[in-house]
């Protein structure tokens, strides 16, 4: 992957496939560290599958949860000296509170840290392809936080206008761009 934002798009798609209705994408930046956390309320994974998710050569091809997505994210994190962890509660054992949490930490100043790239495009792509799911995107930065919660947008738009209408996607792009540029406008 050429951009971390592509890893984000890819791993968040796993949450979609796991049937999640709410997906959280959180970026937390300090001077030295970047922490990416993707959480969902999808079906979760059994301990057996969880144990093999980071093995690129293990594939069941029936769960669609195993493949190169997580190994590539793990590689991207580890090549900076960071790490990736996955925690999951499967719906069979946790019927009330199931889902998955992927956390990856990156040392930002490491020469092998993949650039973030166009994270706005990844968020908009996720919403375009999955207009019935909700996404909560948070980017905590020293310059000011960036936040998007599609549940708020859905409240305003009602049932008449899908979240992936072109005008809405454009609004989301601008909304995020303005937040990222906010510190320059102040």
């Amino acid at each position: 992957m050429k951009e971390l934002s592509l890893n984000i798009l890819d791993v968040a798609e796993n949450s979609v496939k796991a049937g999640a209705s709410l997906i959280g994408i959180e970026l937390d930046e300090t001077e030295e560290l970047l922490t990416l956390r993707i959480t969902d309320n999808g079906c979760g994974m059994t301990p057996e599958i969880l144990a093999s998710v980071t093995d690129p050569f293990y594939t069941t091809r029936t769960t669609r949860k195993v493949g190169l997505g997580l190994p590539l994210l793990k590689l991207a994190a580890e090549q900076t000296g960071g790490s990736m962890t996955v925690a999951s509660r499967h719906e069979s054992t946790n019927p009330e509170d199931h889902g998955t949490e992927v956390t990856a930490t990156f040392y930002k100043n490491h020469i092998d840290c993949t650039p973030m790239g166009d994270v706005i495009s990844s968020i908009v792509t996720l919403i375009q392809g999955n207009p019935t799911r909700d996404f909560v995107f948070t980017h905590k930065r020293s310059e000011g936080n960036v936040v998007l919660d599609t549940r708020q947008l859905r409240d305003v738009l009602g049932e008449d206008v899908p979240l992936n209408s072109f005008e809405v996607l454009q609004w989301i792009t601008e909304f995020l761009r303005e937040q990222y540029a906010g510190d320059e406008n102040r």
Partner: peptide, 23 residues
């Protein structure tokens, strides 16, 4: 196609081009 293989190969700008073009 927006799986890992598609995304890594550059599917995101392709999708955007269709979404924007159609509009």
């Amino acid at each position: 196609g927006m799986a890992t293989c598609g995304i890594a190969a550059g599917a995101r700008p392709v999708l955007n081009a269709f979404v924007e073009g159609v509009n």
